[in-house]
């Protein structure tokens, strides 16, 4: 039987080790070259947002935190809204291509490539007492894409998923500037009135860039009573 790499579609021979034989671990669906190009975040990271400190200019760092997180903490409105973020992969050029193929071109099946790393890293930072809440898409965007990438990731964890958020569509040419909009209205709504008192929540999304989207969701959940709100994303840009 010929194996074809799930990303580059080239034929390859999967590496079979004793681990595979003894634990019935699945063979890798990627060729060695593609697998090596997906880099998991390791080493020292920002305590708050999980940003890797390696390759980061030291001027962007203050002790255990990155300067972005310090800025969030100095903002009275947003301080402590998001407990912490953790991410799985570095956003290198290869990852950019893979994410674009998956999310924008719509090659849904790519999600399988992340299975092992995504669930291992999740359980390294969190556990099954957390409520899993994927970041939703607006109805228009969901129709356009055909699937919600955050939900596809959440499904990799084999834990119950709580679709308790909804999101309204914002036209790009909205009169208000992005900044104004962020300050005045929340991107998200609660799908139903639920009591989240003392609950611990992990928001799931594909990418942490500035952390604004995730904090909007976190703020809403906090207002509904949740005690701890963390986020877990596929990549940290």
């Amino acid at each position: 039987m010929t194996y074809y790499c799930f990303i580059c579609h080239a034929p390859y021979s999967p590496v079979v080790s004793w681990q595979h034989v003894l634990t019935l671990k699945n063979l890798d669906i990627l060729c060695e070259k593609c697998r090596r190009a997906l880099l998991c975040i390791s080493g020292e990271t920002c305590e708050s947002c999980g940003r890797p400190f390696q390759h980061l200019d030291s001027s962007y760092r203050q002790g255990p935190l990155c300067t972005d997180c310090i800025r969030w903490q100095e903002d009275e409105d947003w301080k402590g809204v998001l407990t912490k973020n953790r991410s799985v992969y570095l956003y290198n050029d290869f990852m950019k291509e893979v994410v674009s193929l998956w999310k924008f071109r719509g090659d849904y099946a790519i999600v399988n490539v992340f299975q092992e790393d995504f669930s291992r890293e999740f359980f390294r930072h969190f556990d099954d007492t957390f409520l899993i809440v994927p970041i939703p898409l607006s109805a228009e965007r969901l129709y356009e894409r055909g699937f919600n990438q955050a939900k596809a990731l959440a499904e990799l964890l084999n834990l119950p998923i709580h679709d308790i958020l909804t999101r309204h569509h914002h036209e790009k040419q909205s009169k208000k500037s992005r900044r104004e909009r962020l300050q005045t209205e929340n991107l998200f709504q609660l799908a139903e009135q639920i009591c989240l008192t003392n609950r611990r929540i992990v928001l799931i999304d594909d990418i942490y860039t500035t952390g604004t989207t995730l904090r909007h969701a976190a703020k809403l959940l906090r207002e509904a009573g949740a005690k701890v709100i963390c986020s877990f994303t596929l990549v940290r840009s």
Partner: peptide, 29 residues
């Protein structure tokens, strides 16, 4: 066969099969 995959499609509200080979040009399902 290895270049087809399925997913639960938000457009047709059911499992939907698409072609992975030409997906770079927009998904055909």
């Amino acid at each position: 066969t290895h270049l087809f995959a399925s997913f639960f499609c938000a457009r047709c509200q059911q499992p939907c099969t698409y072609c992975r080979k030409c997906v770079m040009m927009g998904r055909v399902s």
